[in-house]
């Protein structure tokens, strides 16, 4: 049994709260560079230029790339041979968020759903814990802003609709979202599972590095087709008109009940933030 002190989790989350908000991943920066080259609309090109400059300022000056520093969503993969000592995992994560958001001058955006009273320290985090093989502990920190979260949807399609119904729903979701989720966006979707599992897996699909191919050839083909269809809508960067509304489409599939065809869509803005730490 490997022992890991809870304080190590807190420290990892504290550090990632800041680094995720300051340092945009290279995969996203590269996608902006490709976008700048490929975009036909002058306004769209100007948007890509601004986003490249914005990510540079954020990285160099250690300021958040976006004022909405998000809900702290944390995926914990814990090996079954690990024993966390000195505190509960959830509390350790929340302590890290509390520290990171305060020390890093990050916005606290979490409130009571009815009174709208702010919790003032950006907690609680949303923590998904999965027990896996081995003696490792991997923490993925993926803060997400409200503007793009508001565009997420879960639907229960009729199985006879098949792939076509899935594709139509995803394309329509993008059209309806328009400029709200700060395009260029990444479109995550999970087909199958149960409604609550699909929602979680659609969110998790966003973490896959941009520009990588789906290991499932069927999904890879669907991703290419969907990307073309979504971008052919013509909404472009910021929805101002242009070629590139989406930088990528990330699909995952999960077996479902014989009577159902669940679909969850989660759109992520260009501030696609996620960091990983292995303890």
């Amino acid at each position: 049994m490997r022992e890991i002190d809870a304080s190590a989790i807190t420290e990892a989350v504290r550090t990632m709260s800041m680094s995720a908000n300051y340092d945009l991943g290279d995969d996203v920066v590269k996608a902006f560079e490709r976008g700048l080259e490929q975009e036909e609309s002058p306004t769209g090109k100007a948007v890509f230029k601004a986003l490249l400059e914005n990510s540079k300022i954020a990285r160099n000056e250690k300021v958040p790339m976006c004022q909405d520093t998000g809900f702290a969503v944390v995926f914990v993969e814990i090996g079954q041979d690990v024993h966390v000592t000195g505190g509960a995992i959830r509390e350790a994560v929340n302590a890290g968020v509390r520290k990171g958001y305060e020390e890093g001058y990050l916005r606290k955006s979490i409130c009571d759903p009815f009174t709208r009273t702010n919790t003032k320290d950006n907690t609680p985090a949303v923590v998904f814990t999965e027990v896996v093989d081995g003696a490792g502990l991997k923490i993925t920190f993926a803060p997400k802003g409200g503007g793009s979260e508001n565009m997420a949807r879960v639907t229960m399609l009729t199985p006879s609709g098949g792939k076509e119904a899935v594709a139509d729903f995803i394309v329509n979701r993008c059209q309806e979202a328009g400029s709200n989720p700060c395009p260029p966006v990444i479109v995550g979707a999970c087909i199958g599972g149960t409604p609550e599992l699909a929602a979680m897996l659609a969110k998790k699909a966003l973490i896959r590095p941009l520009g990588t191919k789906n290991p499932d050839p069927e999904l890879a083909e669907m991703e290419d087709q969907l990307l073309a269809r979504i971008n052919n809508l013509g909404m472009g960067p910021q929805g101002l008109g242009g070629r590139i509304f989406a930088l990528g489409v990330h699909l995952v599939k999960h077996p479902c009940h014989i009577a159902t065809l669940p679909l969850a869509v989660n759109i992520c803005c260009h501030a696609s933030r996620h960091k990983e730490t292995e303890l």
């Binding site: 954020a58 300021v63 958040p64 790339m65 976006c66 004022q67 909405d68 520093t69 001058y105 990050l106 916005r107 955006s109 409200g146 503007g147 508001n150 709200n180």
Partner: peptide, 22 residues
Amino acid sequence: YVGPSPAKPGAVVGSAGPTTSY
């Protein structure tokens, strides 16, 4: 329509982009 992030010491404002208008 904006809710800026907190200003760092010496800065006038934190990051300050627009929020969704609807």
